[in-house]
Design a binder for these strands. Structure first.
Length: 591
RNA sequence: GGGGGUGUAGCUCAGUUGGUUAGAGCGCCGGCCUGUCACGCCGGAGGCCGCCGGUUCGAGUCCGGUCACUCCCGCCA
């Protein structure tokens, strides 16, 4: 007989009754009746009840074993009496009579309880992550993550993609987030950087002729964390394709994403390909965001004309000064008490807005401080434009166009949640397309790349030379699901002369471009295929599928908010000798 | 860097208006219990109430500071 097990803990059924088997696992729970002891033995695959009574010489030993100790039991599989069957357990029709017992590893008193649904604090959970991961909920989420990644690999390979590895120790990125740096011992004073994404490598693989690349790629960015953003590292489904248009990229990714979500949807509805395509400008206008949650039915309208020259002086004067008014319909909000609208106004101020005006529609008319100062025809026009009726309300964001759009989007999200308008049990996908190539930095007044500087401008060189840079769009696109930006991608700029021109608009000389992106620029001069791709975030996909708002819940060994690994004690000081080898001297800030 | 929340037993939490000896559940230790499956019953140990200072006759409770964790803003091509 195998020294540890003949079966797994989730495996035994009534059909095994009479066999002598051996199981190994963790003592999940004990029920001690004094002369009779039940032990639930747990492994990755399930639970099996083991039983022993005082007639056995092993009774005292098993009774003394603490939960979470690891033991091996050997004995016959016995059918349970009808009244002692546990229908809640797949193995509930049988139990093991313990005939032999070996304690493989004794557990100390636990800092957190594995067999309880009660959640420990995060600090304790991260410090003892191996115990936390034994808990059923965590165990399932990490296994889900593994199955999701396996499914992605299978689907990508089916789509004709080839998986490649790319370097972890590489050069820094001149644009974007802060790099993690690794000092070089062989080159004192020089540093490697960990890749923020394998962006240039995947483009170089296309230039090398591999046609379709993908990788479950680790990405490293030294930025502050959020609930949905780990400090340090995260994973992307990084992909790139040669000789493709934007539509080809969409057609390749959509079945992967739709199929993946369908596979793990567990009854939730998934947008069927082709996913809706929404231009960036339209998304900002209708949803106030470039990552709209399409489960929310609210569509933002423009109400500027209804307020221009009106009796509501605050808005009328602001409009004269170049502001606009966005109307955010709030279906069903008319029944809310006055305090709700006051609360919304307080909240708006806390969010940095000047306030949040509103009109309540009742008895065929508008109510509230704004409606009092607005002609009935204007109120009626707003009501009609927003497709509202009695019992509904509408909120207004009045500001310069860009901040008004953005704030209206924030209000839209808040109302969707407050009014319970978000469609449950659905994954609503869309593409956001036609991003502007450039944008104006409001502080410096300079023109900057709005997304990826390596994206191909729509209209190519001619557009760059002849049009207002702020009007030029890029072949740049995001996948959004339920208000979460899952990925960003682009058709790349594979023409050096277009690249030089694009960078010159953003204020970079040809020499600077050659210095900062030398590897890629020189590669583009030796025959580069038109190519493009995207990079959906693995962690965010798993978060959506696990319905889990915190990224640490779907990562086996995450760092805490301050980018510390509480279990492994990273980051850590290093011996002086290591610093000496690297020619590094510490110059720490004063306490 | 800025703002909010939290911090009480090993763990999860309660603790009233500032007032006697700071409680509960789980866990732990001991005792009883032969059909439980969150087994049950009895008993016990376990507290720098995050830390420092202040107000007060008296502080877990009020005030100031500080530290830790967390959420958000900034940041994240």
């Amino acid at each position: 007989m195998h020294p540890y097990r003949t079966h797994r803990c989730g495996e035994l059924r009534l059909s095994h009754a009479g066999e002598t088997v051996r199981l190994s696992g963790w003592v999940h729970r004990k029920r001690d009746h004094g002369q009779l002891l039940f032990v639930d033995l747990r492994d990755n695959f399930g639970l099996t009840q083991c039983v022993i009574d005082a007639s056995s010489p092993l009774f005292a030993e098993l009774e003394a074993v603490r939960v979470e100790s690891v033991i091996t039991v050997t004995g016959p599989v016995v059918k349970r009496d009808a009244e002692t069957v546990n229908p809640g357990l797949p193995t509930g029709e049988i139990e093991i009579r313990v005939a032999e017992l070996e304690v493989l590893s004794r557990a100390a008193v636990l800092p957190l309880q594995v067999n309880s649904d009660e959640d420990a604090g995060e600090e304790i959970r991260l410090r003892y992550r191996y115990l936390d991961l034994r808990r059923d909920k965590m165990h399932e989420k990490i296994l889900l993550r593994s199955r999701v990644i396996a499914s992605i690999r299978r689907r990508m390979i089916e789509q004709g993609f080839t998986e490649f590895q790319t370097p972890i120790l590489t050069a820094g990125s001149p644009e974007g987030a802060r790099d993690y740096l690794v000092p070089s011992r062989i080159h004192p004073g020089k540093f490697y950087a960990l890749p923020q994404a394998p962006q240039m490598f995947k483009q170089l693989l296309m230039i090398a002729g591999f046609d379709r690349y993908f990788q479950i790629a680790p990405c490293f960015r030294d930025e502050d964390s959020r609930a949905d953003r780990s400090p340090g590292e995260f994973y992307q489904l990084d992909l790139e394709m040669s000789f493709v248009t934007q539509d080809d990229v969409f057609a390749a990714i959509e079945p992967v994403m739709a199929g993946l979500f369908e596979e793990f949807a567990a009854g939730r509805r998934v947008t069927e390909p082709p996913f809706p395509r929404i231009a960036f400008a339209e998304a900002m206008r209708k949803y106030g965001s470039d990552k709209p949650d399409l489960r929310n039915p609210i569509v933002i309208r423009d109400a500027t004309e209804a307020f221009r020259g009106s009796g509501f002086g605050i808005f009328a004067r602001a409009i004269e000064g170049g502001s606009v008014v966005r109307a955010i319909p709030a279906p069903g909000a008319g029944g809310r008490p006055r305090s709700y609208f006051d609360k919304m106004n307080d909240w708006a101020r806390a969010e940095g807005a000047a306030g949040l005006g509103y009109i309540i529609f009742a008895e065929g008319a508008g109510k509230g401080p704004i409606a009092k100062n607005l002609d009935a025809e204007r109120v009626a026009a707003i009501k009609a434009a927003c497709e509202l009726g009695d019992g509904d309300a509408v909120f207004f964001a009045c500001d310069k166009p860009r901040p008004a759009e953005r704030f209206a989007g924030v209000v839209r999200n808040r109302l969707g949640a407050d009014l319970e308008l978000i469609a449950p049990d659905a994954f609503r996908f869309c593409w956001i397309v036609d991003y502007p190539m450039f944008e104006l930095d409001e502080e410096t007044g300079k023109i900057e790349f709005s997304h990826n500087p390596f994206s191909m401008p729509q209209g190519g060189l001619e557009a760059l030379e002849s049009r207002d840079p702020l009007d030029i769009l890029a072949y740049q696109y995001d996948i959004v699901c339920n208000g979460v930006e899952l990925s960003s991608g682009a058709i790349r700029n594979h023409l050096p002369e277009v690249m030089y021109k694009a960078f010159s608009i953003a204020g970079y000389s040809q020499q600077e471009v050659e210095e900062r992106f030398s590897g890629l620029i020189s590669a583009l001069k030796f025959g580069a295929p038109p190519h493009g791709g995207s990079a959906p975030g693995i962690d965010r996909i798993v978060m959506l599928l696990a319905d889990e708002p915190n990224i640490r819940e779907i990562v086996a060994f995450p760092m805490n908010q301050k980018a510390e690994d509480l279990m492994m004690h990273a980051p850590a000081e290093v011996p002086q000798q290591r610093l000496d080898e690297l020619c590094l001297k510490l110059d720490l800030p004063p306490e």
